[in-house]
Nucleic acid binder design. Sequence first.
DNA 1: CTCATAGTTAGACAGATGTCAAAATAAAGT
DNA 2: ACTTTATTTTGACATCTGTCTAACTATGAG
Lengths: 92, 92
Amino acid sequence: MAKMFKALGDPIRLRLLSLIAAHPDGEVCVCDLTGLFDVAAPTISYHLKHLREAGLVDHDRRGTWVYYRPVRERIHRLSLLLASSDLAVPAP
Amino acid sequence: MAKMFKALGDPIRLRLLSLIAAHPDGEVCVCDLTGLFDVAAPTISYHLKHLREAGLVDHDRRGTWVYYRPVRERIHRLSLLLASSDLAVPAP
DNA sequence: CTCATAGTTAGACAGATGTCAAAATAAAGT
DNA sequence: ACTTTATTTTGACATCTGTCTAACTATGAG
């Protein structure tokens, strides 16, 4: 669980996941992501790998391009943990 | 936002927040926390400071003891971000 | 005032993390 | 086959993190 939160604990990765999850097609080509950040392509690749290893995104290659999509069930589980009465219900 | 996730990205801190948030009294004395972990007291102090600086917990001193409580509004906000349609709604 | 207890801060250190340039791999076009 | 484009891997490096012990601060008891 901590591993997933850790993956979200970097500004670039958090934004990457938002971009991937918000895309209308349900997936995003890496080529459309690299241009949006101030860091070089290998660094984006490094962060995508982190998100992958945390189980928050999935990827597959089609031709020369690689597409990433969110693993919504995993993201949802995080949200539930934070929303659980133990953690987030505002005191009555 | 990433700062809050980062704070949760360590197993000790995640467990600390759970313990603090789950306590029936709504707050926990540090003295009741240190014994529950395998690390020395200063390390717990270090992690509590992290949670504090991320705005996830609040603290105050009463006599010799220091009590921590969750900032549920902040935790809730994280949960909402993950639950927002962009991120976590399972595809229909 | 001194002492004991609870907690934090300071300093040191090994190991993890984020970044880049350069090299490697993958696939498609000529 | 060779080239070009897209992406990942590698190796190097500086910085950040988590941990400890030792020293410090704060409070209450005797």
